[in-house]
């Protein structure tokens, strides 16, 4: 589906500039510094993958992008809007940035369709009939036609995760964040979710993915970032990254995982 240009985008931003621009971001929890100066640029329509060992701050970084986690120092611009701003218009940011979680986090007391429709109706106050039409299309898009009235507890993990993706898409975001969305799934169901994400990326949705699926990263990503201990060790297009890693830490990590 076409993403309508958002009317509330900051005037300074034009589509040829990075849609997400992270500049020297630091984040500490208590005295513990998790991000130690991270920078990255994501262009509109790009799919980028963030990989790295556990605890290196991948989740923290993408949570910073939609302000689920507050940045200690640095700047994050999403379509020119500063996320690290005490006066941040959170709703404006969150309708631009959708997020999908490892544990799906569907609302268990609502059916699949209601999960998808809830935020546009209750948060964005959009017309119910129009939202429902869109929601049904999205459910079809993630190949769950017929499951509209199932509760999350009646769906498999892979199906739940696809509902979660549809739920985010129903807000018509410009950027989608995926945090290890296949990590809790069975190997067979991983594929069905990855297919959905790949289609999204191919349709031109800007995607930022944290993943351990190296083959998927190689196929789908335009750019790969490798993080370790709160810094970006190196980043490169996938072919170069996987075949010609320069940094020792990257080589060790890839050696362990491939």
């Amino acid at each position: 589906m076409a993403t309508a240009p958002t009317a509330d985008a900051a005037p300074a931003w034009t589509p040829d500039q990075p849609i997400v621009s992270v500049r020297d971001v630091h984040k500490s929890f208590g005295g513990f510094e998790v991000l130690k100066g991270v920078s990255m640029d994501v262009k509109k329509g790009e799919a980028i993958c963030i990989i790295g060992p556990s605890g290196s701050g991948k989740s923290t970084l993408i949570r910073c992008i939609n302000a689920l986690v507050e940045v200690t120092k640095g700047s994050i611009l999403v379509e020119g809007q500063e996320v690290n701003d005490p006066k941040l218009d959170q709703l404006a940011l969150r309708r631009k940035v959708g997020m999908v979680f490892q544990q799906y986090n569907l609302f268990p007391h609502k059916t699949a369709l209601q999960n998808v429709m809830m935020a546009p109706i209750n948060v964005l106050k959009q017309d119910k009939r129009e939202v429902e039409e869109r929601a049904r299309k999205l459910i079809a898009k993630v190949r769950l036609t017929g499951k509209e009235n199932s509760y999350p507890g009646e769906l498999s993990g892979g199906q739940q995760q696809r509902v979660a993706i549809a739920r985010s898409l129903c807000m018509r975001p410009d950027v989608m964040l995926f945090d290890e969305v296949t990590a809790a799934l069975d190997p067979e169901t991983v594929k069905e979710v990855l297919v959905t994400i790949r289609e999204l990326a191919e349709e031109g949705m800007t995607c930022i993915l944290v993943t351990h699926e190296m083959k998927f990263a190689r196929d789908v990503a335009d750019h790969i970032y490798f993080t370790d201990k709160g810094v970006i060790v190196e980043h490169a297009p996938p072919a170069e990254f996987f075949d010609n890693a320069k940094d020792e830490r990257t080589k060790t990590f890839l050696g362990q995982i491939l």
């Binding site: 959170q90 969150r94 997020m99 979680f101 986090n105 935020a119 209750n122 964005l124 807000m171």
Partner: peptide, 22 residues
């Protein structure tokens, strides 16, 4: 679970909306 709050927040629900609706 905390994930419910996070999911609601990321969908733009305010704290009050999250409490009452989710």
């Amino acid at each position: 679970p905390n994930g419910q709050w996070e999911a609601a927040t990321s969908l733009g629900f305010t704290r009050t909306q999250t409490i009452w609706q989710i």
